[in-house]
Simulated scan of single mutants.
Amino acid sequence: MSKNAIFKITMLAGAVALAGCAESLEESAEPPVEPPVGDALVIIDDGVPTTNFGVIVGSNSDSYNRQGLAKGESYAKTSALEVSPSDNAGSYTWKVDTYSSGDDGSAEVYFIVGSDASQMDLTEYQNGVMLIDLSVLVAADSATTGHQLIMQTNTGTDDYLNRSAFYFNQTQLADLEADGWTTVAIKMSCFTPQNPTFDITKVNDLMRFDIRGNESVSYEIGKVAIEKEATSIPAEAVEWTCS
């Protein structure tokens, strides 16, 4: 066989091999298949937040620090807050302890599923219902009415002005004390924008659970989801209504 023939065969084999490699690379570069979109946005489940969002905790006594926590991490006890991993029949949950830190009623302790950078458009959920799996361990009854469940847009100079909030009271927590796990339902129509700058198409904090007024409260939080339809409330759920 001539040298030219050998060279041509070698080049042909190389071309075939390169074509195979290119095809393999193209196949591996294919994006993953997105899961089908359902009727519910799962904000957090088994301790894991939805993609691009995280668990954030803090308090005003810690200079409004927003401390991110990965699954399995804890937030060491301060004068206002302690957060630790918990368990509900094999499902990961978060245990949050808040502590009275003064007598002026100004304490604010929060558990957030959110992001300082990522945003989500909640337009298609604005007529739905938020469902929170909650276990209240300690919540002595009192007259405190200032607790808040918040969604927040971080697009303005003062983030706290860019909120849509639902207010609940200490009595509602006390009613659940020692009842074990309960699904709490709040219709999205009960959230009231605190300022026109709240933008439901650009929500950074999907769920912010604020305990206020120097109450000592211990609770565990499990799955949180928003159903698109306001009628999608489980029969066993406790609905927190608005006026």
Rank of each mutant, 00 (worst) to 15 (best):
3 K>T: 00
3 K>A: 00
4 N>L: 03
5 A>N: 05
5 A>P: 00
6 I>T: 08
6 I>Y: 10
12 L>S: 08
13 A>H: 07
18 L>A: 12
20 G>R: 01
20 G>F: 06
24 S>R: 11
28 S>R: 06
29 A>H: 13
34 E>N: 13
35 P>G: 07
36 P>R: 15
37 V>Y: 11
38 G>W: 06
39 D>S: 11
43 I>E: 02
45 D>C: 02
47 G>I: 10
47 G>R: 05
48 V>R: 14
56 I>H: 03
56 I>W: 05
56 I>L: 15
58 G>P: 09
58 G>S: 03
61 S>A: 12
62 D>Y: 08
63 S>F: 14
64 Y>G: 13
65 N>R: 12
66 R>E: 10
69 L>W: 04
71 K>M: 11
74 S>N: 08
76 A>M: 12
79 S>I: 01
81 L>W: 04
82 E>W: 10
82 E>R: 15
83 V>G: 03
84 S>C: 09
86 S>L: 06
87 D>Q: 11
88 N>E: 13
91 S>M: 08
91 S>F: 03
95 K>A: 14
98 T>L: 05
101 S>H: 10
103 D>M: 09
106 S>D: 06
107 A>K: 09
110 Y>E: 05
113 V>I: 07
115 S>H: 01
116 D>E: 08
120 M>Q: 09
122 L>E: 01
123 T>Y: 02
125 Y>F: 15
131 L>D: 01
132 I>H: 00
134 L>H: 01
135 S>Q: 15
137 L>N: 14
138 V>N: 14
141 D>R: 12
145 T>W: 03
147 H>C: 10
149 L>H: 03
149 L>A: 08
150 I>W: 06
153 T>Y: 07
154 N>R: 11
154 N>S: 08
155 T>N: 14
156 G>V: 06
157 T>K: 08
158 D>P: 00
158 D>K: 12
161 L>A: 13
163 R>G: 07
163 R>V: 05
165 A>G: 09
167 Y>Q: 13
171 T>S: 06
173 L>H: 01
174 A>K: 09
177 E>W: 07
179 D>H: 14
182 T>C: 05
187 K>N: 15
190 C>G: 07
197 T>V: 09
198 F>H: 12
199 D>A: 12
199 D>Y: 03
201 T>R: 08
203 V>S: 05
204 N>H: 06
204 N>T: 00
205 D>I: 01
207 M>W: 04
208 R>A: 10
212 R>F: 06
214 N>R: 08
215 E>P: 02
221 I>A: 03
222 G>P: 10
223 K>V: 01
225 A>I: 12
226 I>A: 05
226 I>T: 02
227 E>T: 03
231 T>V: 14
233 I>W: 06
233 I>C: 14
235 A>W: 11
235 A>K: 15
237 A>R: 07
237 A>N: 01
241 T>N: 11
